[in-house]
């Protein structure tokens, strides 16, 4: 593997250098942009849009574009495309789609940027840091006994406090994550985590929190809080976790 990387890295660098050098050469013979094409040949125009422009990883984005007076149209990373079209893409990282339309009358370009949020997780935006800190200090996770979604008596008080905090902060939407310990099987634990999160949501709704403010995700044993194989750690992982939505 290392040996392969040692070969791969120089090769990749070399390809990169060649690509850069190649671009320069190509640019040179192009007519300067200010040179007006003959009056009979209109310059191409291009428009590119992405919907939506902000997604979570794995979601789809629809690119749509329109060009006029172009003979060839290409989008970086996609290749040649029709002069007018729609395409669904699934970027996993923030991507700027760059369209170039070439015609006899010149070249036109258009770009559209898609921002990709990391997969659903506990995301704390920096501009609400203090609200997030307050949330963390006021809203506490609850814990479960093994292989059950029953709300324990000791969790009831926590849930009541969480519900009253949410009642006094009606703008906050929350995500409840359902978590399980490492024992047992992935698929079953996801179903169990869903039931833990749903049971927790139901308890909040019963306490007066609007159901529309609560999003529920089961993480099963996919995102453990600790990874030791003992009861203390397993208890940490059998929980419903609260976080601010978005």
């Amino acid at each position: 593997m290392n040996a392969r990387n040692r070969i791969l890295v120089p090769v990749v660098l070399l390809c990169g250098l060649m690509a850069v050098a190649g671009c320069k050469k190509k640019e040179a013979p192009l007519p300067p942009a200010t040179v007006a094409p003959p009056a009979t040949i209109p310059a191409p125009s291009a428009m590119l849009s992405a919907t939506p422009t902000v997604i979570s990883a794995g979601d789809q984005v629809q690119l749509s574009w329109r060009t006029t007076d172009a003979t060839s149209v290409s989008i970086d990373g996609i290749g040649d495309v029709p002069t007018v079209g729609v395409k669904t893409v699934t970027p996993t990282v923030a991507t700027t789609y760059h369209l170039v339309a070439r015609g006899e009358g010149g070249t036109a370009e258009a770009s559209a940027t898609v921002t990709v949020n990391s997969p659903p997780a506990i995301v704390v935006p920096s501009n609400t840091m203090s609200a997030a800190e307050e949330f963390k200090a006021s809203v506490h996770d609850i814990f479960f006994d093994y292989d059950t979604d029953a709300i324990r008596p000791d969790a009831q008080a926590t849930l009541s406090a969480n519900a009253s905090y949410l009642a006094s902060h009606p703008d906050i939407k929350i995500v409840i994550g359902g978590y399980c310990d490492e024992r047992g099987s992935d698929e079953y634990n996801l179903a169990l985590g869903q039931r833990r999160a749903d049971a927790t949501k139901n308890a909040l709704v019963t306490a007066g929190v609007a159901a529309t403010r609560v999003r529920v995700i089961s993480y099963g044993k996919e995102k453990p809080f600790c990874s030791e194989s003992n009861e203390a750690c397993w208890q940490q992982n059998r929980r419903a976790g609260f976080s601010i939505d978005q």
Binding site: S56, A57, G58, T90, T92, P119, D186, E187
Partner: peptide
């Protein structure tokens, strides 16, 4: 290549 968690 979904960049999330894909299983089963």
């Amino acid at each position: 290549h979904l960049g999330s968690i894909s299983i089963s």
